[in-house]
Design a protein around this nucleic acid. Structure first.
Lengths: 131, 131
DNA sequence: ATGCATCCTGTAGTGACTACAGGAGCAAGT
DNA sequence: ACTTGCTCCTGTAGTCACTACAGGATGCAT
């Protein structure tokens, strides 16, 4: 059993965020010492780490919680897990496509700038008349 | 002079968002009819379109406002505009790199799923012991 | 006894909207 | 004149996932 600071170090989740997770019911309420300080078991630290890994992979808290529930199911959860994973991957790929488009638009805008012009082609593009 | 609905259609900015922009001082306060309805000139619609284009390019509202101010400067703003553009491009590219990494991590996780296993490699990876 | 680190609660702020509730006004058709 | 349906108004609360204090209590080492 460790205190919240150590749990934070071991899981990579900040102290404030751990308390936030508890407040929001994302993790179960931690036990307390006589003086009211939170204590964390290895299992609880693993739980934090699990959530952290999901978040690092871009899953929403909602889905991270869903995945954690699936992990506690006796069996047969793998299919649902895969679905969640594939759905998220699709979203990430959509976001990637969007960002790539955005990047090339920006590259073009900025490239016009560097030709030593007196006018500002970037502002012109932003101000253009057509909808 | 048109009403807010028409301004929304012409600029591509939703009615709620236009009112939000006004509330937050992002655009100047619209004039009103005798009955208290907002009215928009062509110039104000262009302003909305300018902000919208900046947002579509991923600029923050803060930077969109800065760019709009620069567009109203008599001259010499182009250099600052270019700086803002390049800075943003760099951020977009950083985000892209991050997303690409995330994508390949997800691809790997999900690829392990589809081999008709009984266990769930994705959950195993999320639950792994090492920090 | 002192000092410093760690912990507690509670609240407010972030960015950029979005979604109502509840009400008033306007324009067109009957 | 009246009704119907659209547009508009204000004000507030919600979204997501935290982050940042303020102000105070506790724990541990010297």
């Amino acid at each position: 059993m460790v205190a919240i600071g150590e749990a934070s170090r071991l899981s990579g989740v900040s102290i404030e965020t751990i308390r936030y997770y508890e407040r929001e019911g994302i993790i179960s309420k931690a036990g307390r010492t006589a003086a009211g300080r939170r204590t964390y078991s290895d299992a609880e630290i693993s739980e934090l780490r699990f959530i952290k890994r999901c978040r690092d992979l871009g899953f929403s808290i909602h889905n991270a919680v869903a995945l954690r529930s699936l992990a506690h199911e006796p069996a047969g959860a793998c299919e649902t897990v895969e679905q969640l994973g594939r759905k998220h991957l699709t979203e990430v790929q959509a976001k990637l496509a969007e960002l790539r488009q955005l990047e090339s638009a920006l590259v073009e805008l900025v490239a016009n700038c560097e030709k030593g012009r007196r006018d500002c082609p970037m502002l012109d593009a932003l101000m253009g008349q057509n909808p």
